[in-house]
Nucleic acid binder design. Sequence first.
RNA 1: GCGUCGGUGGCGGAGUGGUCAAUCGCAACAGGCUGUAAACCUGUCGGGCAUAGCCCUACGAAGGUUCAAAUCCUUCCCGGCGCA
Length: 406
Amino acid sequence: MSAFSFAIEARAPHAGARAGALATSHGVIRTPAFVPVGTKADVKGILPSTLSGLGADVVLANTYHLYLQPGEAVVRNAGGLGTFMGWQGPTMTDSGGFQVFSLGAAFGKTLSKFVKGETGEKEDQLAVYDESVASQHGQLAVIDEEGVSFTSHIDGSLHRFTPERSVEIQHALGADIFFAFDECTSPVEPYDYQREAMLRTHRWAERSLAAHRQNLGARERQALFGIVQGGRHEDLRRESARTIASLGFDGIGIGGSFSKEDMRGALSAAVEELPEELPRHFLGIGEPGDILEGIANGMDLFDCVAPTRIGRHGSLYTKRGIIHLTGEKYKDDFGPLDPDTVIAGTEGFTRAYVAHLIRAKEFLGATIASMHNVGFILKLVAGAREAILNGRFDEYRADFIREYYG
RNA sequence: GCGUCGGUGGCGGAGUGGUCAAUCGCAACAGGCUGUAAACCUGUCGGGCAUAGCCCUACGAAGGUUCAAAUCCUUCCCGGCGCA
């Protein structure tokens, strides 16, 4: 009998927001929850013990990266992802589906999870080609019905993922929750391709589920989430959500690459088709406003690289918006990182000090900034959970947005 | 003192008669980053303006040669090295 279960504890009165608890054999995840991303079995710059202190319940690693390095057998032999990385709580792994996108369609382009502006106007921007990077390799991933062939970004060697192989690797990694192998499409692909890719993702979802059900041991220990795709099209999102929800997954991931404007519609369309009782994970989200938007739409889990990445690069979340620490004005700013938010372990550090460390390329600068940002997002989400339980999520969200973006 | 090599934009360092306001790197400044090929990437970087262009001041200093000089010549100043 699996230790996995999800219980909803409270719902916001006039919104889809909900608070709950997701139980795994390694502990309970309080939802809504932010899941720090530890792609290569580490959240860059932050020790597991620190992460716990910041309030994280769960971390997420990546199948693609761990398969290439050090290889899933090493992680399995270590006793599974959590033991390997010294993290005692629940763990998740992503399937590698996003890499199909980032190493394939988006390879060598100035494009990532999000694009700006109207989708129809993005051709130029998406066509921007980063020669310095792209000249080193060709496109790294090619998709066919069976799976994806790709070359390693590390040594150029050729590899292949199928849904079955992704499941097999994720069984070896042994996370409490893992995702089905999907195809994350580029938002510039036309409707017909979005549909084609979505249907392929559905077929892959069934194959992933079948592969998972064959491994009784893994089935006991691990939960499998299916991923909804469909691009920015609401009809496809609905169809995808209905299909994925009908297959018998333990939870649902909402995937995709959006423009800001498209995210809301695609999300709400999908959510309307989802059953209440399954936990919902909004993959790769996000920025504070996007997370609150997701929570309002009934999302339970979020993961995002932004807090660590932007922190490492010198930016901090504050209650009053994002600040770029390497700016001239912070050289002599001996105030706290965010006067309105106390983050455990960073209390004594000033903006001037961390700005200096970032400029001087000291590791500690990246660590402190990452801690601050991860702590900030965890606090934001914990606050949202608290607000839902107290029946005042709408105010909480409105107050935050006003201060942050105002 | 003699000889020799050299003095270029905040720093390092290309350029050695016109295509040079001057390659490049660093620093600086600004921006970006949303299931991490990311301690990364992009832009600006002498001054001014009506900024895909024009004007001014510039390659140690002062003279000179030339239609034209960061680039050639002379003197001076400064630095490295060698010899006394």
